[in-house]
Simulated assay, not measured.
Amino acid sequence: MQNTDKIPSTRRNTAGNDAFVLSCLVAVCSFGIFTISRIDTPRSIETIIAASEMPAPAEQAETEVAVVAPDPVLDAPAPPVTAPVASRVITLPPPSRARARLPSAPGFITLLGDALNDAFFYRSDYSNPTGHYGGDWAHDNIGQSAEGTNLSVRRHVSRSGPYTGGEMKTRKTYGYGRYEVVMRPAKGSGLVSSFFTYTGAHDGTAHDEIDIEFLGLDTTRVHFNYYRNGRRGAAATFDLPFDAADEDHLYAFEWTADGITWFVDGEPYYKTVEGDAFVPKTPGSIVFNAWTGKPGMAGWHGKPTFESGASAHYSCVSFSPIGEESRACSDLFLPRRHHKTAAQTAQLSIQPSY
């Protein structure tokens, strides 16, 4: 009987080698499966595809230059956004009309106590034989002091009548904007003190005009008046809470395509109605004067009993074009405020058309 407890050594070695080989195969297979599973994951595949399709740096640069060119329309810079600017003007026209313009000289301010600029102002010195004025304009009736300019009315026989008056006007013409004057009218029956714009036949245009007027007969009232093509609009008279002849005050009117608003010491007093057909449309000279009329005017301004040499005083005149901020008389003159707006008391129905 064969003894099975004794196994030859060669057989034992073969069995050990088989076990080692089997272990190696298992290890190799496990490593292969692990490697294949890493390669087959979606993330790894996407990364490989992206890397394979990515152009070389030089090719990428050439593609950008050739394809990504600036478009003159799409790539144009956006327009700047401008914040609204507050305006110091009390009343503003609607935005659609605020842009309306008339030919106009630039804005200005003049302190009439300074040396008078003859290149800027014309000092009237001529006769008025056919007009409503009761005498000539005399250069000598224009006086100057440190406080301003005085325009006098004198009982002096002239070519046009028994009086002479004083007048100044700009050599240039002005359109839509704000007109301001600091003045003190002459006091005395028969006297008229004015600040206004004017253009007419002498300038080769229609008669257009906007007025601020004072009658020396009663300087506690102010008169507002306007014309277009020689036809007068709805003129009005207002009581003032002061006597205008006692001290300087600030008077103004604002003229736009929509109408006219008049101010006293910065407060609105009167405004034309919407669509008023008599609002002027022609640029004019700025004029200020002191005068008395022919005998037929006495029913309006009173019998001329004034003292010879009585004068109206003007210390500042300014113009600011519509929509622009420029230095004005109101920036310098600080009047005593009167918060009560006077009521309209009369229409100037007897005012002559001139």
Rank of each mutant, 00 (worst) to 15 (best):
D5P: 02
N13Q: 10
T14H: 06
D18N: 13
D18E: 13
A19E: 04
V21N: 01
V26Q: 03
F34W: 11
P42A: 09
R43D: 10
E46S: 03
A50P: 02
A51H: 06
A56K: 08
A61N: 05
P72W: 10
A76M: 07
P77F: 03
A86D: 01
S87C: 01
S96Q: 10
R97M: 14
A98T: 00
G107C: 04
T110A: 12
Y122M: 06
S124A: 15
D125N: 15
G134K: 05
Q144E: 00
E147A: 14
V153D: 04
R154E: 15
R159C: 05
S160G: 08
S160K: 11
G161A: 05
Y163C: 14
Y174R: 01
Y176T: 04
V181L: 03
V182K: 04
R184C: 13
L191H: 02
Y198H: 07
G200S: 13
A201W: 11
H202Q: 08
D203C: 07
D203G: 05
G204I: 13
A206L: 06
D211G: 04
G216L: 02
R221D: 04
F224V: 15
N225P: 02
Y226V: 07
G233R: 02
D243N: 10
D246P: 04
A257D: 11
I260Y: 05
D265C: 07
P268E: 00
D276L: 08
A277R: 08
W291T: 09
T292L: 07
P295V: 14
E307K: 09
A310L: 07
A312K: 00
A312C: 11
H313I: 15
V317K: 01
S318F: 12
S320A: 11
P321S: 07
S326M: 05
R327D: 14
L332C: 02
K340H: 13
P352Y: 14
